[in-house]
């Protein structure tokens, strides 16, 4: 174990009623590192977090924290914080009292409890809300209180299970920034689980991709995004996957351009519409297959219109096990 390594998971396998949910998962998290675990719904992300937190009966394999095996350690003795998607604060306690819960349980002096609570109230800009009850808070405020409560016992590692999934889209961006700022300032490591690839790629120092209970991709966000190593990962990351005689190829919608007649592959706009501040079009290629195109400004075409597409970069992928992608020509 390196001196900077905090968490190590080795060969973790979990099955429910004979069905494998995690299959030999291994990962490491360094001190103060913000790791994002991405994957579609049902890929085993939450199961992995619950194993690390000790909330489910241990599976096969090992989990170590600071070099010490913890599979049999009950959750309250692991020193690992958990921020769940479903924020459940103690209903009869104020914001301040909720944040103080962990330090109080740890038996800290009231002066130390107060000091930590004040620090977190300030850090998360909750001071004006400190005497409110949970039912008097908005969803975003409750999330910030839950984060403060999770951080108050000073865990070295915090697990975040889809922490922004239930937050309004307009608040999500603000909370993303807040999460990264707070973890960086406190030097706390995090494993952040999300099925939102943009959230994951934006937030992580390192990202891991979990598919079908297996860890299939790991690395810096830019690297993982630019070089998917399988058809499944490419699709999860938003690539269009085209079948070619040389094997599958991944093409990212941002790297596809609509070009004048004759300069690319012909197709028809199957669907087009605004996505955020951009437009997204799905083009049915005349030679088979479909490809997505993204662009800025106002959508320049209408469904059914004939267009030509072209791209500069494509990622070769190993053939997929099982059904192959639909045939297509490439430009």
């Amino acid at each position: 174990m390196s001196s900077s390594e905090l968490l190590r998971v080795r060969g973790l396998s979990v099955a429910w009623e004979g069905r494998p949910v995690l299959d030999g998962v291994g990962l490491e998290v360094g001190r103060a590192e913000y790791v994002v675990l991405m994957g579609p719904n049902g890929s085993g992300k939450t199961t992995l977090l619950r194993q690390i937190a000790g909330l489910d009966p241990p599976g096969a394999g090992s989990i170590s924290l600071r070099g010490r095996r913890i599979e049999r350690v009950p959750p309250h003795r692991r020193g690992i914080g958990l921020l769940a998607q479903e924020v459940l604060l103690l209903p009869g306690r104020t914001v301040r009292e909720n944040i103080a819960y962990g330090p109080e349980v740890a038996g800290l002096s009231s002066a130390e409890v107060d000091r930590r609570v004040e620090e977190l109230l300030g850090l998360l800009r909750l001071t004006p809300l400190s005497e409110r009850l949970p039912m008097q808070l908005s969803g975003g405020e409750r999330q910030r209180v839950a984060l403060a409560r999770t951080l108050a016992p000073r865990p070295e590692l915090v697990l975040l299970d889809e922490p922004l999934a239930a937050v309004d889209p307009e608040l999500r961006g603000e909370l993303r920034g807040e999460l990264r700022r707070v973890f960086r300032e406190l030097g706390v490591a995090a494993v952040h689980v999300t099925h939102d690839r943009e959230e994951g790629l934006w937030m992580g120092d390192r990202v891991l991709v979990l598919l079908g209970g297996r860890l299939v991709e790991a690395g810096p966000p830019g690297e993982v995004h630019a070089h998917p190593h399988s058809v499944a990962v490419a699709r999860f990351l938003g690539y269009s996957v085209l079948a070619t005689p040389a094997g599958p190829r991944a093409v990212h919608p941002r790297e596809v351009r609509l070009v004048p007649d004759g300069a690319g592959i012909a197709g028809r706009i199957a669907a087009i519409g605004p996505v955020g501040g951009e437009w997204l079009a799905e083009v049915a290629l005349e030679e088979g297959g479909r490809i997505e195109v993204r662009g800025s400004g106002v959508a320049p075409y209408v469904p059914g219109e004939r267009v030509h597409v072209r791209w500069e970069r494509e990622v070769p992928l190993p053939p997929e096990e099982g059904p192959s992608p639909s045939p297509a020509q490439r430009g």
């Binding site: 937190a53 959750p75 769940a84 103690l90 740890a106």
Partner: peptide, 23 residues
Amino acid sequence: VPTALEESLATLGAPPARVYRDT
């Protein structure tokens, strides 16, 4: 009492007796 509330308190360091008392 939602299970997730109990789990949250356990990960905050509350032993089973304390979780019982508070939830």
